[in-house]
Design a binder for these strands. Structure first.
Length: 794
DNA sequence: TTGAGTGCATTTTTT
DNA sequence: ATGCACTCAA
């Protein structure tokens, strides 16, 4: 269909009902490039899904002609779920998924052209680092100078710039070596038949770039491409997109994003892609979604005022019909502990007032800040949930099990081999492994293939390991995924190991959970939404791949491969799934618990009440962000994201004193307070709250810290501890406030040039008296009191 | 092979 | 303060 003579489509009433004019315009935008600036809480997901539903319902496109890309599995899933409630669609024909998920799907179909083995497996970030570590060792390079993590960063960065090892600009020795490591790592990955995350993107980009037939096929196929969170795309992802839907090809590309919520520059996201998109695609349709359906007015006023301080914005202001609502409450605490204590009392009050605990979120800039809050919640016996810990498929025992499974699929996967060759221990030590690695390196073969080259006791132990893997494989041929897992867990000795381990109960549970996950994958997911190769006729010349019989009975057989007719086993599909989706991070996700997370991980979520904690110079905005150019603006966007998470109530708090890295820091309140509209704020008196003043508070403080988190078993499972009065620590008794002419350590001071600060240290006396003051954005200063005019404040 | 002891870094993170 | 990665002795 020619997009330029767009016919009038009958507007199906149900779908478009209740859309505001901007949303309506976005949903029914003509089939040409469009940029949607979607503010926080403006119904972005709704627009995306309604758009797809509308396109399908009006017959402008069939499922096979749609590609919708997101960043997270969660977003992709949500889109799919909402879509299916709007419209009975055959989801299989559509390409809805994450960038990486779609790349995987693409490479499974074109593995040969991509130069990959058919059953290639995917390395997660941790696997990739350990693979790089092996490369560095094999090259006998100094691990101090070439830190595996940093090298991994370098390689991922290069790939995201579309660079292969020969393309690296080797201007110095260091870069030359890095490029050499990159090359060796690539070779190793090829030998082992694995790809990392960045490779998924780059490899599929290259296939599209270098294979005209494939490129033309997909460009013809995808009439409508939709991209979520466009502000988070990196250089490679944008280039990838342009391969599927280049400017001027008549495809409709709908990019949805919010430049004000771009908070991932540090990992390569380029907000600039939005304006590049607008220019390169000659976008006529820029639609702003500014009507907010989430928050009350005061909250939005705060967000708008704050973000207006940023330059280089595409320009957008949120508005609401909901009225001003409650003021934004601000609390100044004396210590991080008092901050946590106050926050908990406030949260309890909200809960007593009928708010679910899971509707209350506590946000912080860095993970280290969660400890005090956790500790306080724990002691108060309030259930809570911390986001961002280890996720299911990242747990050690699960990774062990997956490594065994990978070896069943591909014994030449050295990463997996090394992970489990001596776990559980079977007498294969570092020496044996070194010998084996030497042999493998010498012959250019895998560790598995080199076992026979190792002599003696070590050799026979290694052989026994190989036999173990081989026999498991032989034993489980033709069995269900569940049976394969059960057999593997027994034969490998993992089950027995954790049965005998005194702390093994939870790990055993997780292994059981892994079996469940496999079962669920096979039945519910109808495995291989992502993993299964495309139907044979997918690439038939001139094929209009809409309406193909995609339906495959789930849990039956995998779809045969496009070229050879070979089948991707359920096991291989499950392993792929495990790499692409790390799973949830907490067992009791369903419980009504207060939600703790970093501001970054709060993006995309919303809560009735939000506490933004630790609003102090150096912490938020973070000190490390102030050095680089766009750093402060990104911090401000981060704050903007945090504010706009709140529906009804927003609390901001900061503390005069904070324990960080084992040292007490005296912080100045965040500059962001100066950037919020005073009329929307309500400052709460710090004096009437918490533990009162001085000694009593510090004493309580010290004791609470001492109790720590060590004794905790798990969130929300513990009752309030009954305790005797703790003894007064000696350090407390001796403590005397340092004072000088009305100045006190820990209290505020004013300096005519540097403004407000916090007194950190006082030294010397008389003419020699010096003071150390933290002036926040002006930094830490030493001042001679005989010269500097410091006046106490408060 | 395993345990205790030492050194070191410690913004944000999905796939 | 604390966790983790790595070293060295038993």
């Amino acid at each position: 269909m020619n997009p330029h003579d767009e016919p009038q489509h009958p507007a199906p009433g149900g779908l478009l009902k209740n859309l505001n004019p901007e949303q309506y315009a976005a949903v029914t935008a003509p089939a040409e490039p469009a940029l949607i600036l979607a503010g926080a809480g403006s119904g972005k997901t709704r627009v995306l899904t309604t758009r797809i539903a509308w396109l399908l319902q009006t017959g402008q496109v069939s499922p096979g002609g749609i590609m919708a890309v997101t960043f997270t599995n969660k977003a992709a899933k949500e889109m799919l779920t909402r879509l299916t409630t709007m419209l009975p669609v055959n989801a299989r024909g559509m390409w809805i998924g994450t960038f990486h998920g779609l790349c995987n799907r693409f490479l499974r179909a074109h593995w040969k052209l991509a130069g990959l083995p058919q059953g290639f497996q995917i390395l997660d970030a941790t696997d990739s680092v350990s693979a790089i570590k092996r490369v560095i060792k094999a090259m006998s390079l100094d691990e101090e100078r070439y830190v595996p993590k940093q090298v991994s960063w370098f390689i991922a960065g290069a790939k995201e710039d579309g660079l292969r090892p020969p393309d690296i600009d080797v201007h110095d020795e260091q870069t030359r070596t890095l490029a050499a490591i990159y090359q060796a790592y690539e070779d190793q990955c090829a030998r082992e038949g694995v790809v990392d995350f960045a490779e998924l993107m780059l490899r599929s980009y290259e296939v599209m770039r270098d294979q005209p037939a494939v490129r033309e096929h997909y460009q013809r196929r995808f009439r409508h491409v939709l991209v979520d969170e466009f502000q988070d795309t990196n250089k490679l992802q944008y280039a990838w997109l342009k391969m599927f839907a280049p400017p001027g090809q008549g495809q409709s590309v709908l990019a949805v994003g919010d430049d004000d919520q771009s908070i991932y520059a540090f990992r390569g996201a380029r907000v600039g892609n939005m304006s590049d998109f607008e220019r390169e695609y000659r976008v006529k349709n820029v639609i702003k979604l500014e009507q907010n359906y989430r928050s009350f007015g005061n909250i939005l006023d705060a967000a708008n005022e704050l973000i207006s301080r940023n330059s280089r914005r595409l320009g957008k202001e949120l508005r609401t019909d909901a009225g001003p609502g409650e003021p934004v409450r601000v609390y100044e605490a004396s210590s991080d502990f008092a901050e946590a204590q106050w926050l908990i009392e406030e949260a309890q009050a909200l809960h007593r007032g009928g708010m679910d605990r899971k509707e209350i979120a506590v946000l912080y800039r860095s993970n280290a800040q969660s400890r005090v809050i956790e500790s306080a919640l724990f002691n108060a016996g309030i259930p809570y949930r911390v986001y961002g810990g280890l996720r299911f498929f990242e747990r050690a025992e699960v990774k062990h099990a997956l490594a065994y499974l990978r070896l069943l699929e591909n014994p030449n996967d050295d990463t997996s081999f090394l992970r489990v060759v001596n776990f559980p221990a079977r007498g294969i030590g570092a020496r044996a492994i070194e010998l084996l690695q030497d042999a493998a390196r010498a012959s250019g073969r895998s560790l598995y293939q080199s076992v026979s080259a190792v002599a003696g006791k070590a050799g026979s132990n290694l052989k026994a390991f190989n036999d173990l893997v081989d026999s498991t494989r032989n034993l489980t041929v033709g069995h269900t995924l569940r049976e394969i897992l059960e057999q593997m867990l027994e034969i490998s000795g993992l089950n027995e190991f954790y049965r005998n381990d005194k702390d093994g109960a939870e790990r055993l549970e997780n292994l059981g959970e892994l079996i469940n996950a496999a079962e669920a994958f096979v039945t519910q997911e109808g495995f291989g939404k992502d993993a299964v190769a495309l139907p044979v006729d997918e690439l038939a010349p001139g094929a209009i791949s809409e309406g193909l019989p995609h339906a495959v009975a789930p849990a039956q057989v995998a779809t045969p491969d496009a070229e050879t007719g070979e089948i991707m086993s359920p096991l291989a599909a499950f392993l792929t799934h495990a790499s692409l989706e790390a799973g949830d991070n907490q067992a009791q996700a369903g419980q009504d618990a207060v939600q703790l997370m970093t501001v970054h991980s709060a993006k995309g979520l919303e809560f009735d009440a939000v506490f933004i904690t630790g609003l102090e110079e150096g912490l938020f905005p973070h000190e490390n962000s102030l050095s680089d150019g766009d750093g402060l603006e990104e911090e401000r966007r981060l704050m903007y994201v945090a504010i706009t998470r709140a529906r009804q109530r927003l609390y901001l708090c900061f503390s005069q004193t904070r324990m960080l890295h084992g040292q007490t820091r005296y912080n100045v309140k965040s500059r962001f307070f100066d950037e919020l509209p005073e009329a929307a704020l309500k400052w709460l008196s710090p004096r009437n709250q918490g533990f009162g003043s001085g000694f009593a508070r510090e004493y309580q403080d010290a004791w609470q810290r001492g109790s720590g988190l060590k004794s905790m078993v798990g969130a929300g499972r513990v009752e309030r501890p009954s305790y005797a009065e703790p003894p007064v620590p000696a350090s407390m008794k001796k403590k005397v406030a340092e004072e000088h002419g009305g100045l006190r350590v820990g209290k505020g001071v004013f300096h005519t040039k540097f403004g407000e600060g916090v007194l950190v240290t006082l030294e010397g006396s008389g003419a020699d008296a010096r003071a150390q003051v933290n002036f926040g954005r002006h930094g830490m200063k030493w001042l001679a009191l005989s010269v500097a005019k410091l006046t106490p404040i408060d």
